[in-house]
Amino acid sequence: MVLSRVAREIQASATLAITAKAKQLAAEGKDVIGFGAGEPDFDTPENIKNAAIKAIKNGFTKYTPTSGVPKLKEAICEKLFNDNHLKYASSQILVSAGAKQSICNIALVLCDTGDEAIIPSPYWVSYPEMVTLAGAKPVFLETTDKDSFKITKESLAKVITPKSKLLFLNSPSNPTGMVYTEEELREIVMFAVEKGLYVISDEIYEKILYDGAAHFSPAAINDDCYNKVVTVNGFSKVYSMTGWRLGYAAGPEKIIKAATNIQDHTTSGANSITQLAGLEALRGSQESVTVMVKEFDRRRKYIVERLNTIKGISCLLPQGAFYAFPNVSRLCENLSLKGSFDLVSLLLEKAHIAFVPGAPFGADAHIRISYATSMENIEKGMDRFEKFLNT
Rank of each mutant, 00 (worst) to 15 (best):
S67V: 10
L72V: 02
M292C: 03
S173M: 04
L246W: 00
Q263D: 03
A7T: 06
I208P: 07
L3A: 11
L348T: 09
A372I: 01
P172R: 07
E28W: 07
G135M: 02
A359C: 06
D41W: 13
K163Q: 15
I256H: 05
F361Y: 15
V125I: 15
I353N: 01
L167E: 02
T64Y: 06
D41I: 11
S121Y: 07
T132G: 03
A321H: 11
A117C: 13
R5A: 10
K380I: 01
T274N: 12
L347F: 15
A51R: 05
R298F: 06
T143S: 14
V199D: 00
T274P: 02
L209G: 08
V328I: 12
G251M: 04
I310T: 11
L72S: 01
L282C: 10
N308Q: 07
T266S: 14
E46Q: 13
A27L: 14
I93C: 05
N390G: 06
A372E: 00
S148K: 14
D224F: 08
R299F: 07
I151M: 08
N105A: 13
K380E: 12
L317H: 03
N271Q: 08
S164Q: 07
N84T: 00
D342N: 10
V356A: 10
N233C: 14
T19G: 10
H85G: 02
V109W: 00
V289I: 15
D115V: 04
K21L: 14
D147R: 06
D223G: 12
G320A: 08
L282F: 12
D145W: 11
I119R: 03
M382V: 11
E287A: 12
Y371H: 12
E28A: 14
K207V: 03
R298V: 14
E253T: 13
I76W: 03
A51G: 12
E386I: 02
L316N: 12
K163W: 04
E187V: 06
K257F: 07
T66H: 08
L167Q: 03
P120E: 00
P252K: 15
S90P: 13
D115N: 14
R330G: 00
E203F: 09
T242F: 09
K54D: 10
A359Q: 10
Q319E: 11
I204H: 04
I200S: 10
